[in-house]
């Protein structure tokens, strides 16, 4: 069964300059690996950048399935002091 998934994307730092806070409706994305390639295709600036994904405020360490209405955060490293 093909269904669109609704996700909330929250980004920070430099990444928020090209991926604003938004709701996306996407098809063919069921896990975080697929979401990463979706994001890197839609926002090529992201390719090669270091960032951490979190789903519903929990950082993910390996591929993880997504469900409708999940909140996905994209966090880059900061170094300034």
């Amino acid at each position: 069964m093909e269904m669109n998934m609704k996700l909330e994307i929250i980004s920070f730092g430099k990444i928020s300059e090209f991926i604003g806070h938004q709701q996306v409706e996407i098809s063919n994305v069921t896990d975080t690996d697929q979401l990463k390639s979706y994001l890197e295709t839609s926002f090529p600036e992201l390719v090669g950048m270091k960032y951490k994904l979190a789903v519903n405020q929990n950082m993910i360490q390996s591929n993880q399935s997504l469900k409708n209405e999940d909140k996905v955060a994209i966090m880059p490293p900061f170094s300034g002091g």
Binding site: G13, K14, G48, M49, K50, K52, M59, Q61, M75, P76, P77, F78, S79, G80, G81
Partner: peptide, 16 residues
Amino acid sequence: RDIFPTPPAPGEIQNC
């Protein structure tokens, strides 16, 4: 390193 296992490439992230 549990958040960022390796450092960014030089110049990828700007400092103050």
